[in-house]
Simulated scan of single mutants.
Amino acid sequence: MQNIITAVIQGIVEGLTEFLPVSSTGHLILTGKLLGFTGEKADTFEIVIQLGAILAVAVIYWRRILNLLGLIGLKTNSSQPEIPAHKLNLIHVILACLPAMALGLVLHSFIKSYLFSPYTVLAGLVLGGVFMLLGQGKQAAVQAEGIDQLSYRQAFLIGLFQCLALWPGFSRSGATIAGGLLLGVSYRAATNFSFLIAIPMMVAASGYELLKSYDTLTASDTGFFVTGFMVSFLVALLAVITFLRLLERLKLAPFAYYRFVLAVVFLGYLLLTA
């Protein structure tokens, strides 16, 4: 029963935080610390529930994904024509994903060895929050109101900003959305693009980690892992839909301040329990 409770809690944390600009990795590390759920099994479990969150985004954006693959046309609404193929396409996605994928491969061992402690996560939460406030405060004049107005240059530069999220706690969505704002991309377009490029990024990262750690799985863990996966999928589905509706009204600042408060509270906890 304790294992199922842990699976549910971690699944909820992953689903809520994976696509919000608060860092899911940071939250999972901190929650795992509180639950006493650490080690190789915990690392593999985090990979599996991340796949649940990816599936949620794929379900929400299935039309756009099929359009990117050239399988269907895409209409903005019933009164407008199909979006031309030269608008948002796979080149945008590739340009945005390559920098972080390449740098992640190069720095993988260093990141795993030195940046996954609670203290480095807390530093990432603070630094990421500062960057989000910078993105909101210094937002450039909007050049790309919709996702189909993104240029290749903007896509690539957003990909460079995504590299900041290799530091656990910084937040991939926070880095890409704030980076998009600095480049003249609207909140909604930056958010939609951030969620879309999360799919190949997370599939690649999760797939790589899963191949390295699949031998830690046993048949007795099936219920535990399936529970976490399903909870993560359902919660992420609701979180993404809600976040898309609220972002333009809330902006990034409330999430940045939340990160600061979380960092201070958990630092106090670590110092008291040291």
Rank of each mutant, 00 (worst) to 15 (best):
G137W: 12
N77T: 12
F110D: 02
R63I: 10
Q143S: 14
Q143V: 12
I60M: 12
A155G: 06
M132K: 00
L115R: 04
I158H: 03
G124H: 05
H108C: 13
N77E: 13
F110Q: 04
S117I: 08
F156G: 07
I94S: 12
G159N: 07
L69F: 12
I111K: 02
A144L: 10
V130C: 04
I111W: 06
R153H: 13
Y152L: 15
M101R: 07
L125V: 03
H92R: 09
L164C: 07
L95V: 11
K87G: 12
P84Y: 05
F116P: 01
L133Q: 04
G73N: 10
L88K: 05
V142E: 00
A56V: 07
I72V: 15
L134I: 12
L69Q: 06
K112I: 11
G73S: 11
G70C: 06
D148S: 14
Q136L: 07
Q162I: 10
K75F: 03
A85K: 13
L105D: 01
G104D: 07
I72F: 01
I83Y: 08
G135D: 00
A102V: 06
K112N: 15
R63A: 11
E145Q: 02
L68R: 04
I54Q: 08
H86Y: 08
K75I: 00
L88F: 06
S79L: 14
I94W: 04
A100L: 03
S79R: 14
I65M: 11
H92C: 09
G137K: 11
G135V: 03
D148F: 10
V93S: 07
A56R: 06
A58C: 15
L133T: 01
A165Q: 11
L105T: 12
P81E: 09
A141F: 08
A155H: 10
L105S: 06
A85C: 10
S113T: 13
L66G: 11
I147W: 01
P81W: 05
F156R: 10
W62S: 10
N89G: 05
Q139I: 01
I60W: 08
A85L: 14
V142N: 04
M101C: 12
G128F: 02
H92L: 14
Y114M: 13
I60R: 11
F116A: 03
G137V: 08
L95P: 05
G124F: 05
I72L: 10
V126P: 00
R153Q: 13
I111Q: 05
A155I: 09
G104N: 10
G124L: 04
H108G: 13
L107F: 14
A96F: 02
L107E: 07
P84M: 09
I94R: 02
A102I: 08
C163A: 10
I91W: 06
V59F: 14
E82C: 03
Q149V: 11
C163M: 13
L103N: 02
L74Q: 07
A100V: 06
L164F: 06
P84F: 05
M101G: 13
V126T: 01
I147A: 01
M132H: 00
E82Q: 04
S151K: 15
G137M: 12
A144H: 00
F110H: 03
Q154T: 05
I94V: 15
H92V: 12
Q139P: 01
A53P: 06
